[in-house]
Amino acid sequence: MDNKVEAYIKKQRSPQKEIIGKLRHIILKTCPGIKEEFKMGVPWYEGKYYLVGLKDHVNIGFSIDGMSEEEKELFEGTGKTMKHIKIFSLKEINEDEIIKLLKVVKED
């Protein structure tokens, strides 16, 4: 567990703090052994995922390298290597759906 990640989560407002905490738990549970670090100002997971608390929501970002066009359409954003989904409340988090999306990201 990265202390900078802990500090980042702690300083978030509600509900972003709780959303990030839950998403982080899902990532760490779904991807045992994944390296968590604090990079570019946000929690970062081996270049595959990131979490960022914004004004009224949280983005969970996903690497789209190697994805089909259909797979890329599951996400928002215009990034060339990363796209995201927006989450506005804890009750919006469907753990099974998040796990499915985490597994769409291609292994190296």
Rank of each mutant, 00 (worst) to 15 (best):
C31E: 12
G33V: 06
F38N: 10
Y50V: 06
N59D: 15
E37R: 15
H57C: 12
S68H: 01
E36M: 09
G47P: 05
K17R: 15
G33Q: 06
I60W: 03
E37T: 15
C31N: 13
K22D: 02
I60C: 03
K22N: 04
N59K: 09
L51Q: 10
I34L: 06
G66I: 04
V52W: 02
G33W: 05
I34F: 06
W44C: 14
G21C: 05
C31W: 09
L28A: 02
F62E: 02
Y49R: 03
L51W: 05
I27Q: 00
E46P: 08
L54M: 12
F62H: 04
G47K: 02
G53A: 14
M40F: 14
P15K: 09
L54I: 11
I20S: 12
F38H: 11
I20E: 10
G33P: 07
L23D: 04
Y50D: 03
K35C: 05
I26S: 00
M40T: 10
D65L: 07
P43Q: 13
P32Y: 00
L23R: 04
G61N: 10
M40W: 11
F38M: 14
G41V: 07
G41Y: 07
G47R: 01
F38E: 12
Q16H: 09
H57F: 11
E46V: 03
P15F: 08
H25N: 15
G33C: 07
E46L: 03
W44N: 14
G41I: 11
V58D: 09
K48W: 06
G66Y: 00
G66V: 04
L28Y: 00
G21R: 15
T30H: 04
S68C: 02
N59W: 08
D56S: 15
P15E: 08
V52Q: 13
Y45R: 08
G53Y: 05
M40R: 11
G66K: 06
H25F: 06
E46C: 07
E37S: 15
L23A: 04
V42N: 13
G53S: 11
Q16I: 09
I27Y: 03
E18C: 07
L28N: 04
I27H: 01
P32D: 01
I34H: 09
L54N: 13
P32T: 02
E37F: 06
Y49S: 02
V52L: 07
E36P: 09
I60F: 04
K22C: 02
H57T: 14
I60Q: 05
G47M: 03
G33A: 05
L51V: 09
E36K: 12
E18N: 15
C31K: 15
Y45N: 05
H57R: 13
Y50G: 06
I26C: 02
I19M: 12
D56M: 09
Y49L: 05
V58H: 08
K29Q: 14
K48M: 11
L51Y: 06
W44S: 15
I26F: 01
K48P: 04
C31A: 09
G41W: 06
R24T: 01
Y45L: 06
L28E: 10
G53I: 07
I19C: 10
I20C: 14
Y50E: 03
K39E: 10
I64Y: 02
G47C: 04
I60S: 05
G61Y: 08
R24Q: 06
